[in-house]
Computed example of a mutant assay.
Amino acid sequence: MARSATPDVVVVGAGVVGAACAEALSAAGVRVLVIDRAGPAAGTTAAGEGNVLVSDKEPGPELDLAMASRAEWDVVRGRLSAAVADIEWEAKGGVVVATGDPEPLQEFAGKQRAAGVNARVIAPAEVFELEPLITPRVTVGVHYPDDAQVQPVLAATALLAAARARGGEVLSGVTALGVRQSRGRVVGVETSDGDIACGAVLNACGPWAGAFAASAGAAIEILPRRGMILVTAPLPSETVRHKVYDADYVGAVGSGDAELQTSTVVESTRGGTVLIGSSRERIGFDETIRVRVLRELAAKAWGLFPFLGDVPVMRAYGGFRPYAPDHLPVIGPDPRMAGLWHATGHEGAGIGLAPATGRLITELFLGLAPHVDATPFRVDRPAVIAA
């Protein structure tokens, strides 16, 4: 495979995390080549809702990364050319509600405020002002003005376009099979189209990152966790004005339970459709559509927004999210193999966390001071590398 120049980094995976890493690296002058066995945003990214959230995370390292990434999204969008800048960015804000005991949600919001999140507790009357069609059973709400949404496929392809404009390359239909080493250091990546010489390899394979790491000889514990989404017929604008979810969603995000969990998430898109989630279950890479999951999603959404009971559902789709057992992304160099890097394990938060992940990878790669503490995301932690 002839290359105009040997890339400094081959990014394996053209989803939003790989794309964000490629964009950030290329913005810093690093030569990048992105390869994907399918194509840009063809896997987990295409099956996402496009969430950019600070509202759903407990105080700690992931919330720190989310807050940094929310700010970094503004920086990255400013680097996109006018031709690709419309990624359907909507700074719509989020509204989280409880329909039972209000105290747990109020306490959660208080902890987030102490960590620097703009989380404003609001009475039911104000919830109804923000979302007139929500259930009257609401007992308390929290408004998160910093929550936002993008169209995930547009976002990933725009980031890749920015990397290409700086001299990077993107190859679709090329499967990474392993890495080549010399004296304990990565010197290339083995692919279905032949070997590619490079200075480093970044594993951004999402839920398949564990398999690629194993093929490279440096296994990490990344598991697939499936999620399903319902899509309604188009509705008038302003029908659902924010990203709205119930307080149970936070617990589902942080749970390690392998069994099915569902919680209510409802949000509109620019096209007028309403996305209804969310589900989580660890069932390997089983793609079977389970009617029980769809029924639970529909019933809970109807409970939050009663008008949805009369709205037809056009389709359902699902995807696999990269899950690390300790619920933290894996970001940084692999200490067992010089030149092998990982950016994975974001589970359902990859869209929101992608820009900060790309910046952090770039800072670590260039030896710069990281803008967030990289230690919690290191590769050599017990949950990721078995003893």
Rank of each mutant, 00 (worst) to 15 (best):
A386E: 03
G110C: 14
A82C: 01
T45K: 05
V142N: 12
T239D: 09
A247L: 15
V274F: 09
S55V: 12
L130C: 00
G319Q: 02
Q181T: 12
L33N: 13
A158K: 07
D380Y: 14
D193L: 15
D56Q: 14
A218V: 12
V96D: 01
H242V: 04
M67D: 06
D195G: 15
G43V: 01
H143E: 06
V187N: 06
D380I: 10
V97D: 09
A258H: 11
G348N: 05
E221A: 09
A24G: 13
T357M: 02
Y249E: 14
T273G: 03
S192A: 09
H371Q: 11
A298Q: 14
E72I: 05
D248C: 15
A216I: 07
P152N: 00
N51D: 10
A114N: 10
G116D: 04
E72M: 03
A91P: 09
A68D: 03
V187G: 00
G210R: 00
V95Q: 12
S215E: 08
A214D: 15
I122V: 07
G277Y: 03
V11K: 13
F365H: 15
A247K: 14
G178H: 11
N203D: 11
A163P: 07
L65V: 11
R280E: 01
A158S: 05
H346F: 04
A383G: 12
D64P: 02
T375C: 07
V201I: 10
D195P: 15
E238H: 09
L80A: 03
A197W: 15
W302C: 09
P7T: 15
A22L: 09
G29L: 02
A98C: 14
A109N: 08
G60C: 12
E281Q: 15
M337K: 03
P335S: 08
R183P: 04
D310Y: 03
L364D: 07
N203G: 06
G48E: 00
F212T: 03
L230W: 04
P104S: 05
R113P: 06
A218E: 13
T135V: 11
T344Y: 04
G141W: 11
I385Q: 10
A343R: 01
L105N: 03
I289E: 13
D326W: 13
A218L: 09
T45W: 01
T6R: 15
S81R: 15
V17A: 00
E107D: 11
P329D: 05
V231S: 02
R166G: 15
V97I: 13
I134Q: 13
F128C: 02
V313D: 03
G256N: 14
L230T: 06
K92C: 06
D147N: 06
V52M: 09
W341Y: 13
V121D: 07
L297C: 05
R321E: 00
R321M: 00
R280V: 01
A46W: 00
A338N: 08
Q151P: 01
G251S: 13
P136W: 11
M337A: 02
A258K: 13
P132M: 03
A383K: 10
V54G: 02
G350Y: 03
A24I: 08
S55C: 08
P355C: 00
V84L: 00
P335L: 03
F128M: 11
